[in-house]
């Protein structure tokens, strides 16, 4: 199917929306409430385009492409309308980016930048306190643009059924159950809403102030907890040798979804209680020793006992927590070096 975008012909698949078709060809259309997972719902009206033959201007995220459709995505009047819509949003809250966790990764900031908006031109409402009542989430109502992505996520992707819109018109707000603080609500803090939030309304509490988005190195890995093996991206501060934040990988089989342990249980490696040195029990007390001493001591004791009583008195436990490579190393050591098959692991708990 062919369509015309700003005068140029493009090949697109039927069933795509104008937005998807434009983006697949690198044509920029600003969006705020659209997200690949939660779809185009036509709430923010920033993605309006002109389509020949259609009455008025339409939202690119909800209208599907049609054969030989002529679409204009940039025009002075479109820009004026988009600018007014974003200006209304900026004036409806307190989008001050100075120390916002989402700075540099905020879609409202990007769209305002692309439209050249510098400040809200309408009087702003009075500030409201942030909801800090939960362990891992922070909800700042004054940065919420009511795009509904968090609610759509909570009710259709992770289906924890905690979020919903409450009240009406200008008082519409995102509400946890019957407008409870997050901490006492039924929220299991899986963080899907934080990942879907385009602005700084919903952010990770533990990551606040520990690193700007662009300062942190992104490295993909697998979750250390249950057997689902969710794919995640670690936001790492190399200088501080610390994981600052975790997000789910949208392109992997878990589609960006995680649970509370996966998303927020990342800081145990940096705990001061870690075992850091080899130790040997000397007259009943475990003492720190060097690697040399520990390895020599262990090797000689193993050799002494195995030579005396044979290999079968040796047994080794691998683990469901360590990597495949380490498990393989343990079984190879037990079989090739010691010469027994007494190797097992805690598959039973």
């Amino acid at each position: 199917m062919n369509i015309e975008l700003n005068g140029k012909i493009y090949e697109v698949e039927p069933g795509q929306t104008i937005l998807e078709a434009a983006r697949s060809h690198g044509v920029y259309i600003p969006t705020l409430c659209y997200h690949a997972k939660t779809g185009g719902v036509g709430k923010c009206r920033v993605c309006v385009v002109e389509v020949e033959g259609m009455r008025g201007i339409v939202t690119a995220c909800t209208v599907q492409v049609g054969e030989d459709m002529k679409i204009v995505t940039e025009s002075p009047s479109l820009r004026k309308h988009r600018k007014m819509v974003v200006d209304l949003l900026l004036s409806a809250g307190h989008h001050d980016c100075l120390s916002c966790a989402q700075c540099g990764n905020c879609e409202l900031q990007d769209v305002a930048y692309s439209l050249g908006l510098t400040h809200p031109s309408f009087p702003q409402p009075e500030r409201k306190p942030e909801d800090l009542s939960s362990e891992f989430l922070v909800f700042d109502e004054t940065k919420c643009i009511q795009c509904g992505r968090c609610i759509q996520g909570d009710n259709c992707t992770v289906i924890n059924d905690t979020l919903g819109f409450a009240y009406r018109g200008a008082d519409t707000k995102v509400s946890f159950d019957h407008d409870l603080p997050i901490g006492s609500s039924s929220c299991v803090q899986c963080g899907e809403c934080v990942q879907l939030c385009p602005t700084g309304a919903l952010t990770d509490k533990k990551a606040r102030g520990l690193g700007r988005n662009w300062e942190l190195e992104k490295v993909n890995t697998t979750c250390p907890y249950c057997g689902v093996g969710c794919q995640m991206t670690l936001h790492v501060d190399r200088k501080q040798n610390r994981i600052v934040r975790v997000t789910g990988r949208e392109d992997a089989f878990n589609e960006g979804m995680l649970c509370v342990k996966g998303r927020y249980g990342y800081d145990f490696p940096s705990s001061p209680k870690r075992l850091t040195h080899p130790m040997i029990r000397k007259n009943g007390v475990l003492e720190q020793v060097s690697w040399e001493e520990a390895l020599d001591y262990t090797a000689t004791r193993i050799k002494e006992i195995v030579d005396r009583d044979g290999p079968d008195v040796f047994s080794a436990f691998g683990s469901g927590r360590i990597t495949n490579e380490n498990n393989y190393a343990i079984q190879k050591f037990t079989r090739a070096v010691i010469g027994t098959n007494n190797v097992d692991h805690c598959a039973r708990t």
């Binding site: 923010c44 018109g169 200008a170 008082d171 519409t172």
Partner: peptide, 18 residues
């Protein structure tokens, strides 16, 4: 209309108020 706006889309929710 501002009082009866459903609040779903930005221009109506915020625009009528202004």
């Amino acid at each position: 209309t501002q009082d009866e706006s459903c609040g779903k889309c930005v221009p109506c929710r915020e625009g009528t108020k202004r």
